[in-house]
């Protein structure tokens, strides 16, 4: 491992002076994402272990695959708009950046609204955390994913507002890259969840 010259005057987060020549914040973000793998892994494994523990309650037949497919598609496309926002700020085109960052936030919000709607439907059909281990695991897993999306939306709004006030500029593209890493990770988790949580159990349970 080679070592760059470490300038003594700063502990700031820019890649120029670090031992590995990479930025501190980005490294921290990847550490966090590595940690999140274990977090979502635990939630997913609990769901898979309890997939047949329905205690005479409803099961995967409640899933509306058409609806979830649509919201999955929207979240996937928000990842595309996120990278387009990053390309925008890296090119110094703040107008394009703002368009795409708002688009990302909107798509994330639509996804979140869809999830809330879906939850209310399930609740009205008699599924809630107390019904069976299956639904306990389902709500905790998808709920935590929703919380991650919501936190991402907050950060997107903050980034958009900062670009309006001029705090966020082309030089800060890395902040958007890190935000993007978080957002894509949340999307990647949903890619897994859509198959593992919705499609496969619904197949086993005879479709919607």
């Amino acid at each position: 491992m080679t070592v760059d010259v470490h300038s003594p005057e700063s502990t700031a987060d820019h890649g120029h002076h670090t031992s590995l020549g990479i930025s501190n914040t980005k490294l921290a973000m990847w550490c966090f994402i590595g940690s999140e793998c274990l977090f979502f892994g635990a939630l997913i494994s609990a769901y898979l272990i309890y997939i047949n523990e329905r205690a005479d309650g409803p099961g995967a037949e409640l899933f509306d695959i058409e609806f979830t497919s649509a919201s999955t598609f929207i979240l996937l496309m928000s990842s595309l708009s996120m990278v387009l926002a990053l390309a925008g700020i890296q090119a110094g085109d703040m107008r394009r950046f703002r368009i795409w960052i708002v688009a990302t936030g909107l798509m994330g919000s639509v996804f979140l609204a869809g999830q809330i709607y879906e939850f209310t439907v399930f609740l009205s059909e008699g599924a809630n955390v107390t019904v069976s281990p299956f639904w306990s695991a389902f709500f905790l897993l998808t709920g935590f994913h929703g919380v991650h999306v919501a936190f991402g939306i907050l950060m997107l709004i903050a980034a958009w507002a900062s670009s309006l006030t001029g705090r966020l500029r082309m030089e800060n593209a890395e902040t958007i890259e890190n935000l993007g890493l978080y957002w894509h990770f949340v999307d990647v988790v949903w890619i897994l969840l859509f198959t593992l949580v919705y499609l496969i159990p619904a197949l086993g349970g005879g479709g919607s």
Binding site: L43, E53, P133
Partner: peptide
Amino acid sequence: PVIGVALWELMMDTSFGANFFDPAQGGD
């Protein structure tokens, strides 16, 4: 994160009536 999830599941069981670890409800 592993213990974090386990603790959330425990809290869901004790405070919100979830069934992760309660054998009476099919949990393990």
